[in-house]
Design a binder for these strands. Structure first.
Length: 596
RNA sequence: GCGCCGAUGGUCCAGUGGUAGGACUCGAGCUUCCCAAGCUCGUAGCCCGGGUUCAAUUCCCGGUCGGCGCACCA
C-alpha cells in the first residue's frame, strides 16, 4: 500500500486544481476567501452527487422538490430567529486585539446564564460590573464597546435604500416559509416532504480548508412535515442498517463510538426521534453507495449547548477528513418551532386540518358581544370589554350561567355587563377534526463537503508496471465520466472507428470522453486521475471482429466486449446494476497487449 | 478576527538588488504501439499597492490569497 495519509488536503487540492475539480474563484483579481469555482470534472461530479441525492431523498421517498429564492426579506428572518441568533456579540481587547464573543465571556463568569439574548449595552454593563478581563493578556475589558457580527449576508431589495433582505443561510427557511402552499399541493395530508437543492450563504469569519468551509455552498435539504402524534417513518426498511453512533453520553463518557443497527438505536432510546433514526439509516446506505468510506463515517449527536436555536435534537453525519471529523450533514428535529413562528408573525396559516375518524359533537359556550350597546355605553373601553368577554367564556363559561350579568375586568375597571348584551349562547357544534401544527425533521446535506469527501476518501496511489499511479476510486454512479474512448494508435483508421464509437455513446446519453493524443498509457492515467472507471480502446483486432477492450480503472484488468454491446454494458455499469467483475465473468479476458 | 509561516510558468519547486531556472504537464514533429518510454523543438511565470533605490521578483510597509494555531462554525 503506497497510500499515504499525510497531507491529503494539500494533495487532493493540488489534484483538484490541476485536473479541473475546483479552484479558487476570481483568481485574476486576487480572489476572495471562501468562494470556489467547480471546473469541468468537478461540476460533473457535483451534479452527479446532487442527482443521486435527488433520486434517493426526493424521488424514492415520494417527496416534492422546489426552488425558492436565495434572497429573503428581513421579516422572515425576524420570525425564524436567524436575525437574533445568527448575530454574535463580539468584543475586542484593545491591548492584544484578541476578539471574543461577549456573551460567552459573561456566561463564563458563572454569574449569568444564556447571555446570548442580551443587548449590546446590557452585555457592556455586565462586563463592567463583573470586571471581566481579557483571557489572553489579562487587561480589563471595562468600558470596551460590544459590536455585532451577523453571519448572514445582507443586501437591499429595490432602489434607494430598499427593503432590507438577506441571502439565505440555509435553503430550509425558503421551504418552510412556503408551507401553506406546499400543504395544498400535498392535498392537505401529512406526512409530506419537500426538498430543495441550491446555494446558501454564510459570511464566515474564517473560510478554511479548500471547499470544506466556504461562504457560498450548495445544500440539499429535506423538510419532512408530520404529525408527531400519529405519523411514523417506515423504520422497517432500514432497521438492519448498522450505524456508527457517537451519542452525547459517549462524548461525555468513554469517548467510544456505538455500533448499532437502526432498530437497536431506536429500541435502546439512543435516538429519540424516529424520523432522525430513519434518515440516519437511509443516509448511511446512500453515503456508502456514492463512495464515502464507511470506516470514516460516523453520526455524532449535538451536545445540548451546541444545538441551533430551532433544534430539539440534532445528529451530524461526520466524515474523517484531513485528520479531523468534519460535518457532512445534519439531521435536526426542528419540532414545530419554525412553523409556529411563521404562523405567529406572518399572515399565513401553518396548521393542518386533521379530520377525526368520527365527527364529535360538543357543546360550546360562545359570546357575541353586542357592540351597538357596548360602544355608546363604554366608548373607548368597549373593544377591551368585548375581548375580556371572549376570554372569559373560554376560561370560565359558568360565569355566564349565574345571574343576569357578568362581572369582568377591562381597561383597569370592573364592569357589570348584562347577559343579553354578551350574546352568550351554548351551541351544539359538530367538529369533524382539529387543526394541528406539524413538526419538522430535517436532513440537511452540505454538497460541497461531500464532493470533497469523495475526492479525499477515494484518492489512492499504487504502482502499475513499475510506474506510480494516482487514481480516484469514485463509484461509476458519480464519476464525472463513465468511460474514456481511445484508438490504440493514431493510425490505420483506428481514430475514425474510435471516434464513431464515442459519438454513438455520447448520443446514447453516456458521459464519455474521447482522446487520441499521446501514448495509450498516458491516456489511461489521465482518466484514472479524474476517476473515470472504464476505458474503451479500439485496436487492430477491432477491424477484424468488431470488439474493443474494456479496461477497469481499479484493477487495470481488461476484457473484450462486442462493439454493439458497449452502450448497454456501459449503461449497466454506470447505474450500478452490474459490476466490472460481473461483466467480466461472461466475457473474454485479455492481457495487457489486448490478446486472449 | 488575532498570531506564525508562505505566495516564482498549468502543477510542484530552486534562485536573484541589474526582470529568472529545473522537473512534470501542455502543444508540434520523429519514433514507439495496451498502462505517465525516448529524442528534437515550442508555449508559458516572479500576487497586488505603496516606499527605499539609478534599478525591486528580491529589502521595508500595507493589502489580498493560502496553510497552521487560537477564536468562530447559528
Amino acid at each position: 500500500m503506497t497510500d499515504d495519509d499525510e497531507h491529503r488536503l494539500a494533495r487532493v487540492t493540488e489534484l483538484a486544481k490541476r485536473r479541473g475539480f475546483f479552484f479558487a474563484a476570481n483568481e485574476p483579481y486576487g480572489g476572495v476567501a471562501g468562494f470556489w469555482t467547480y471546473g469541468p470534472v468537478g461540476a460533473a461530479l457535483k451534479r452527479n452527487v446532487e442527482q443521486r441525492w435527488r433520486e434517493r431523498f426526493a424521488h424514492e421517498e415520494g417527496h416534492m422538490e422546489i426552488q425558492s429564492p436565495t434572497i429573503i426579506p428581513e421579516p422572515v428572518f425576524e420570525a425564524s430567529g436567524h436575525l437574533d441568533d445568527f448575530t454574535d456579540w463580539v468584543i475586542e481587547c484593545p491591548t492584544c486585539e484578541t476578539s471574543y464573543r461577549a456573551d460567552h465571556l459573561v456566561e463564563g463568569t458563572g454569574e449569568v446564564e444564556d447571555a446570548e439574548g442580551l443587548s449590546a449595552s446590557a452585555l457592556e454593563s455586565l462586563i463592567d460590573e463583573l470586571d471581566i478581563s481579557c483571557r489572553s493578556c489579562g487587561d480589563s475589558l471595562q468600558g470596551i464597546s460590544v459590536g455585532e457580527f451577523n453571519l448572514m449576508f445582507s443586501t437591499a431589495i429595490g432602489p434607494g435604500k430598499g427593503e432590507p433582505g438577506y441571502l439565505r443561510p440555509e435553503t430550509a427557511q425558503g421551504t418552510i416559509v412556503d408551507f401553506p402552499r406546499l400543504l395544498e399541493y400535498a392535498r392537505g395530508d401529512l406526512p409530506f416532504g419537500a426538498v430543495q437543492i441550491g446555494p446558501a450563504y454564510r459570511n464566515e469569519i474564517s473560510p478554511r480548508r479548500a471547499i470544506i468551509r466556504v461562504r457560498e455552498m450548495t445544500q440539499a435539504e429535506l423538510e419532512l412535515f408530520y404529525d408527531p402524534e400519529e405519523d411514523e417513518p417506515p423504520l422497517g426498511a432500514v432497521a438492519a442498517v448498522e450505524l456508527e453512533l457517537y451519542p452525547v453520553e459517549a462524548q461525555e463518557g468513554d469517548g467510544e463510538h456505538r455500533r448499532l443497527t437502526v432498530a437497536e438505536a431506536v429500541d435502546g432510546g439512543i435516538i429519540d426521534n424516529p424520523w432522525i433514526a430513519y434518515y440516519l439509516g437511509v443516509a448511511t446506505t446512500w453515503f456508502h453507495e456514492i463512495g464515502v468510506d464507511p470506516a470514516k463515517l460516523r453520526f455524532r449527536q449535538h451536545l445540548p449547548g451546541e444545538r441551533a436555536h430551532y433544534a430539539a435534537d440534532c445528529w451530524d453525519a461526520e466524515a474523517y477528513l484531513d485528520d479531523d471529523w468534519i460535518e457532512l450533514a445534519g439531521f435536526a428535529y426542528r419540532t414545530n418551532y419554525d412553523l409556529n413562528k411563521h404562523h405567529e408573525y406572518s399572515d399565513g396559516s401553518y396548521t393542518v386540518f386533521k379530520p377525526y375518524d368520527e365527527p364529535v359533537t360538543v357543546e360550546r359556550a360562545t359570546v357575541d358581544p353586542d357592540m351597538a350597546m357596548l360602544g355608546p355605553e363604554y366608548g373607548a373601553a368597549a373593544a377591551d370589554i368585548a375581548s375580556a368577554l371572549e376570554a372569559l367564556v373560554e376560561t370560565n363559561p359558568n360565569a355566564f350561567e349565574t345571574g343576569d350579568a357578568v362581572t369582568i375586568e377591562a381597561a383597569g375597571e370592573t364592569h357589570e355587563i348584562a347577559l343579553e348584551t354578551t350574546g352568550y349562547t351554548v351551541e351544539t357544534v359538530t367538529e369533524s377534526g382539529e387543526h394541528i401544527m406539524p413538526h419538522v425533521t430535517e436532513p440537511a446535506f452540505g454538497i460541497d463537503r461531500l464532493v470533497y469527501t469523495l475526492l479525499e476518501h477515494n484518492f489512492h496511489e499504487d504502482v502499475v508496471d513499475g510506474e506510480p499511479r494516482a487514481y480516484l476510486e469514485l463509484p461509476p454512479t458519480v464519476s464525472p465520466n463513465v468511460a474514456g474512448v481511445f484508438p490504440l494508435v493514431d493510425a490505420d483508421g483506428l481514430p475514425e472507428r474510435a471516434r464513431a464509437l464515442a459519438d454513438r455513446l455520447a448520443s446514447a446519453g453516456l458521459p464519455i470522453t474521447y482522446d487520441e493524443r499521446g501514448a495509450i498509457g498516458r491516456r489511461y492515467r489521465r482518466q484514472d486521475e479524474i476517476g473515470t472507471p472504464f476505458c474503451l480502446t479500439v485496436d487492430h483486432r477491432t477491424l477484424e471482429d468488431d470488439t474493443v477492450t474494456l479496461r477497469d480503472r481499479d484493477s487495470t484488468k481488461q476484457i473484450r466486449v462486442e462493439m454493439v454491446e458497449v452502450p448497454e454494458v456501459l449503461r449497466s455499469l454506470r447505474s450500478g446494476e452490474m459490476s466490472f467483475e460481473a461483466v467480466a465473468a461472461n466475457t473474454e479476458a485479455v492481457d495487457r497487449e489486448g490478446n486472449s
